[in-house]
Write a protein that binds this DNA or RNA. Structure first.
Length: 493
DNA sequence: CGTGCCGGGCT
DNA sequence: AGCCCGGCACG
């Protein structure tokens, strides 16, 4: 991660000018001090006074007033090298030696872990501890909640009336206001694409690819006023325009993420605003990978189809006993299915981590994320349990039922819920009062299943339960039901 | 014998 | 309702 911050002309004399290994005048989040148990985190702070080192390659050429403090938290070699080049620093003396891989432990997505190169600008109000200003409160880099506000406030402060449209992308003060936002958006977009580029997923290429890429991006965003070569046309809208979710190295943030994951659902544990403010990747992920499915709510039938018409036909023909080839619908079947959203990423993660195997599965398990729609081009069947007579599909063979298993009235909802029920438009259309818990209502309408004869016990499921998965030592990770010695709600059969 | 979870008790 | 656990059945 790379951070640039303007130090408000207040860089103390004898600071870390020149990139010496000494303590920078302002520690932009002193991770090592705050998190002694995070030894792998590296940070190299360097301040460069404009003009002192000659033109800054790539960025820093805009002649920001005063000294500029660059703080890098470097992800092994590649970024370090890029930074060295960008800053013109000597490798051995720039504080980057001994750089170790930045620790992103606790992050689940490797792609997230490589989301380096994201520009951020800490608020100038967090400059070096001025005499009349309290020292920065630690992890200000991560305090995006007020970053923009602070910048705005700073802009309104005397001595700097220049508007600063972004709190994330540093814009030299001298630049004209026009086009600031565009360029910042472009820069952010480019960086976003870089941080999420599949290229960096490859360890072999990650050492090579990022540097020119981010360098180019930076030069594009920062040197566009001087370079005529820059051409980043607006037609490239394929890259997400949302700011990249920079993964901070902040252990607190990590804890935050973990705590979110530990909640029953992201919405419950972490408000959306928090996701946004901390730029947690979850919302974007959901946006990109959530797939709407339709799940049959008929008792003991957990058919999940990808289209509403399919599920309606399923309910109509299989449960309501109506003629299959008739498209007529009286709407009754709408009571027996619900719309769910399946996180395909999580689905794939779950598949890869849990590696459940089905005895009926033949051949290598399918690779999941994109193929769900493509592997089953025409079939709507994504059966997880299968009605007798249904031919098993790839999904039904490979996907653990838990991953698509929905209990809208789950009493023991575990933290690893991968799907969440949502109300359906159809249900509203047929006049069922949505109420506050339409899914529950819908579920309550499920026809009662014939009770098993007393004395008969449900056959033991083959799925690994929380106890097996997590073990006794991680009992707190079990689902509630398992903790209570009840039927596991997470790894159902 | 380890494990899943039913049934029931306690709060 | 939430929580805990004895004890039984299954593999």
């Amino acid at each position: 991660m790379y951070t640039k911050r303007v130090v408000d002309d207040a860089l103390p004399a004898g600071g870390t000018r020149g990139g010496g290994g000494g303590a920078p005048p302002t520690r932009v989040g002193d991770f090592s001090r705050r998190a002694p148990d995070y030894p792998a985190r590296c940070e190299a702070s360097v301040s460069v006074a404009e003009g002192e080192r000659g033109p800054m390659p790539a960025f820093g050429r805009q002649g920001a007033v005063g000294s500029v403090l660059y703080t890098f938290v470097v992800d092994s070699g590649s970024m370090a090298e890029g930074i060295r080049r960008a800053t013109g620093l000597c490798p051995g003396r720039d504080g980057l030696h001994g750089v170790e891989k930045v620790c992103f432990s606790g992050l689940r997505d490797q792609r997230e872990a490589v989301s380096t190169g994201v520009l951020k600008r800490a608020s100038p109000t967090h400059g070096p501890p001025a005499p009349n200003r309290p020292p920065p409160d630690g992890l200000m880099l991560l305090d995006f909640r007020n970053a923009g506000k602070r910048v705005d406030q700073t802009n309104g402060s005397p001595g700097d009336g220049q508007p600063c449209p972004s709190s994330h992308i540093p814009v030299p003060r001298h630049r004209k206001p026009s086009g600031h936002a565009d360029k910042e958006v472009m820069a952010a977009t480019v960086l976003t694409s870089l941080s999420t580029s599949p290229l960096v997923l490859h360890p072999a290429s990650s050492a090579v690819v990022p540097e020119p890429a981010w360098k180019e991006a930076l030069s594009g965003s920062y040197s566009s006023s001087t370079s005529g070569n820059w051409s980043w046309d607006a037609s490239d809208q394929s890259v997400p325009s949302t700011p990249s979710p920079p993964l901070s190295n902040d252990p607190n943030n990590k804890g935050f993420l973990l705590s979110c994951q530990g909640e029953d659902s992201p919405e419950d544990g972490c408000p959306e605003s928090t996701h946004f403010l901390f730029e947690d990747p979850i919302p974007r992920k959901r946006k990109n990978s959530m797939k709407v499915m339709f799940k049959c709510l008929w008792k003991n039938c957990e058919k999940v189809l990808s289209t509403s018409s399919g599920i309606q036909r399923h309910v109509r023909t299989l449960h309501l006993g109506q003629i299959s080839d008739s498209d007529y619908s009286d709407g009754e079947e709408d009571f027996y299915y619900t719309e769910i959203q399946v996180n395909m990423d999580s689905l794939s993660e779950g598949l890869s981590s849990l590696t459940p195997t089905s005895p009926t599965a033949a051949g290598p398990p399918p690779i999941f994320p994109p193929p769900l729609a493509t592997l089953i081009p025409r079939s709507e069947y994504i059966s997880v349990k299968g009605v007798p007579g249904d031919a098993p599909t790839l999904l039904s063979q490979s996907a653990p039922s838990t991953l698509c298993h929905i209990r809208t009235d789950h009493a023991y909802q575990g933290p690893l819920s991968l799907v969440r029920p949502v109300s359906t438009e159809v249900r509203r259309q047929v006049g069922v009062s949505g109420g506050t818990a339409p899914a529950n209502k819908n579920y309550a309408l499920t026809p009662p299943a014939p009770k098993p004869a007393p004395g008969t016990r449900k056959p033991r499921g083959e799925a690994k339960k929380c106890r097996k998965v997590y073990g006794m030592e991680k009992r707190e990770m079990w689902c509630t039901a398992c903790r209570w010695k009840k039927a596991c709600q997470r790894f159902t059969d």
